[in-house]
Design a protein around this nucleic acid. Structure first.
Lengths: 330, 330
DNA sequence: TACGTTGTCTGACTACAGTCAGAGAATATA
DNA sequence: TATATTCTCTGACTGTAGTCAGACAACGTA
């Protein structure tokens, strides 16, 4: 796992939030530790035994992930993080038990596809059932009110833990993931703007403008999947423009946009930018709130972007803060 | 693990709460499942790798559990649920690494006691540090507000999951655990009553009165530890009395008292009791609320208990509910 | 057509988790 | 004093997780 890397990676970002990690509430740390111990370790172990009952964990995971429609081995390998030789063996064991059948793909003779047999599907349904049963067993003894409290608290913990697992990286704007993010972004603009959105009418941000030294693209990821992005174009006279700020709808309100923006500002600052500007559409209320909250102030139009209603800018403090932080943390 | 037993055990109790488990909110079940998957499996696995880094899990657990003062092997065996042969081997491995020293106990030459050496203590401190670090890493990228939300939600989840892990059993009132519970109960009365509490002045409930056919003692346990109790004395004319209702202070408000009471009522009902009575002191406000909420109504004093201010009673419905439920669930 | 790449499979490992049967010493009990 | 019990230790297992190197066929590309 990349936990240590992720960690040092996050440390280097001067989000302003990690500022006080040394003075962080000791009670909070204790609560998280206690939670880890009680829930992640103890409940986790009980879960495994109860759910998989006599079936090796990886067999159960595979049966689950193959799903009803079958799945390519290479996909499974990546998704479950298994060694290719190991996967072959576990798959062979499942095949010997008559739970899966593996065949080559039509289009590409190299890739192999696993399907669940009928009895494989039965086993999968059984896993599903036990999962339900475990959940019911937990809820069973609680009162209605407690159940509501528990599920809502669980949802919150999940969401915030996921937030803490999101990490940022500067990436190539021509990668498939980058293009996917841009598509999501455009699709959202199109659906939200009062009169749609046509990228060709808007001010461009070509791929070559989003790589050093002309700019940068930051992608936020959760478990390897892209969940947000933001770009910056370094212009003349120490001025830069923010572009394509997008966060996956299900993960909004968790500060991802803020983190992306801070990272873009950091990159701009490193590129000797003194002023960051951006324009936005009036329908993007969360974004506008984000900008204002981060210290952006409204100015009059500095370009002719047809879809924009507001123009913002923010002076970057060129104090020793960033340098000091980078020096201290890296 | 005793999960399955616990489950059927809990199913047999007509708590009135588990009534609707079949119609239980499907969303709640989905939320719990999702939580189990995300938190218990994923985060749990990351935890382990990160915390133990290259050290076998059981070695790490042992180092942790031996603690600063040392611990008897038999205690460790029970606490961690390890096979005795296996424990010897793991302990041997730790000894070979110079992390622990094992010696025989003075009083009893059979029992062996493990102590951490200096380098063992260092390793333990390192585990401790990494545990902190992991917590910090989770909190790191969150805003102050999110941190508060997360820790409070974590606390709630922990508490409610623990509530769901509490199970009840009818037990022998002369066991050390039963006596411990009574001591806790008396100690609490003594500290809360306006003029203290002296058990000898109060109406008795001897051990032999709390075993069938004269009565029963129910003990609530969490991870094997007693955390609450309640007793019932079956009297003449189909009348029973509730006694010694106590719940560990840290676990109040989770419905444990209610569950104990329901179980006592069920036992009374089985013993052909029609009316349950109890008396209580005015300082025990939660208990009074519990009784009223469960359908007990205040009546005039039916005994001369010197510490009582209120007397309550409740008619047990002798409908077919209990019988039907028992028939259906067992 | 040659060559590198991709995806899979095999063999040969290591290490940890966990179980079972039985030996042996120290202690408790009849 | 004889016998049972408690606690630990040893040996001999099984099964799962996980790694590494290399073989090989199918495919894409120069």
């Amino acid at each position: 796992m990349r936990v240590p890397n992720k960690r040092t990676g996050s440390r280097r970002l001067p989000w302003g939030i990690s500022d006080d990690s040394s003075e962080m509430d000791a009670e909070a740390v204790l609560q998280v530790r206690s939670f880890n111990r009680t829930v992640a370790e103890r409940i986790g172990a009980v879960n495994d035994r109860f759910l998989h009952q006599h079936r090796p964990m990886n067999e159960a995971r595979l049966i689950w992930e193959i799903g009803l429609e079958g799945e390519e081995l290479r996909t499974l390998r990546v998704r479950l993080g298994l060694d290719s030789g190991y996967l072959t063996r576990v798959m062979g064991s499942l095949a010997k038990q008559g739970l899966v059948r593996v065949r080559s793909a039509r289009q590409d003779g190299r890739v192999r596809i696993a399907h669940l047999t009928k009895s494989g599907l039965r086993v999968r349904a059984e896993l599903d059932r036990r999962s339900d049963e475990l959940a019911l067993h937990i809820l069973d003894v609680l009162t209605e009110k407690q159940r509501e409290q528990l599920t809502s608290a669980m949802g919150q913990v999940e969401r915030l833990l996921e937030a803490s697992m999101i990490y940022l990286a500067t990436e190539d704007p021509t990668s498939t993931d980058a293009i996917w993010c841009f598509e999501q972004y455009f699709a959202e603009l199109k659906s939200r703007f009062e009169d749609g959105f046509d990228p060709s009418r808007s001010i461009s941000a070509e791929a070559q403008e989003l790589v050093p030294p002309r700019g940068a693209l930051v992608i936020a990821r959760l478990r390897g999947q892209p969940v947000g992005c933001g770009a910056v174009k370094f212009g003349k006279k120490h001025v830069a423009e923010l572009k394509r700020m997008w966060v996956c709808p299900t993960l909004r309100g968790l500060g991802v946009g803020r983190r992306v923006m801070n990272e873009l500002e950091r990159l701009a600052s490193e590129a000797n930018v003194h002023l960051v500007r951006l324009e936005t559409n009036r329908t993007l209320k969360e974004a506008i709130r984000l900008y204002r909250g981060a210290g952006y102030v409204e100015v009059k139009a500095f370009n002719a972007e047809p879809y924009a209603h507001y123009w913002f800018e923010k002076k970057l403090e060129r104090s020793s803060r960033f340098l000091k932080k980078n020096g201290r943390d890296s």
